[in-house]
């Protein structure tokens, strides 16, 4: 977790200042690049993807087979960073619940969803959810039946992950945008049911 007073923040500021002094970076260039990277990234994108998958089974199957191609159909992309990242969507079912972590750092589909929540980057979450996902999920208020298979996905390489939650019961009459409003960021990571 970065704080302005931490050693790593001081080191980063020092390197940034050196790069600026030597003319390798314009003042403020890093902030501009970060702003560009984050522009348009919000959990609402993930919610749109999920709602479309709930109402359109064809889209859902394309999403699970080739998420990068499927999200382009609704005007979204994983190409917001330096290169397009591979997106892998994992679907919750009656018998399986998925949860995403990056144990080595904090890999997350930032270009699509915006910055990750603080707890996602915490050592506590990263170290515990691979060993005891049921216990961690319980702390998030998700109580899974004993028969539900829990699948943890560790983003240790170049893919980024999105969980496709199960559509809640009793939502048959809702429109797509109303369905999207039900989807939370935690649901997209797997630490909430929806």
């Amino acid at each position: 977790m970065s704080h302005d007073s931490s050693l790593i923040s001081a080191q980063v500021r020092h390197v940034e200042a050196l790069l600026e002094q030597r003319g390798l970076l314009d003042a403020g260039e890093i902030d501009t690049r970060i702003d560009e990277f984050l522009a348009g990234g919000t959990p609402a994108n993930g919610a749109r993807i999920v709602a479309r998958a709930w109402v359109d089974p064809g889209f859902a199957s394309r999403l699970l087979a080739d998420a990068n191609g499927a999200i382009r159909e609704i005007g979204l992309s994983m190409a917001g960073g330096l290169q397009e990242q591979r997106l892998k969507v994992v679907a919750n079912t009656d018998g399986e619940h998925n949860v995403v972590v990056c144990t080595l750092c904090s890999c997350y589909p930032i270009a699509l969803l915006g910055p990750s929540p603080g707890w996602y980057k915490s050592e506590a979450y990263r170290s515990r959810v691979v060993r005891d996902p049921r216990g961690v999920l319980r702390e998030f208020g998700v109580e899974l039946p004993a028969g539900t298979q829990v699948s943890v996905w560790d983003a240790s390489a170049e893919s980024r992950y999105l969980v496709l939650p199960r559509r809640p019961e009793g939502t048959e009459g809702l429109a797509e945008d109303e369905l999207a409003a039900l989807v939370t960021r935690k649901g997209l990571i797997g630490t909430a049911a929806v």
Binding site: V130, S151, V152, D154, A157
Partner: peptide, 11 residues
């Protein structure tokens, strides 16, 4: 211990 699975991306 544990009845879950962990899927890791490996080179």
């Amino acid at each position: 211990a544990g009845d879950h699975t962990v899927t890791v991306e490996l080179w």
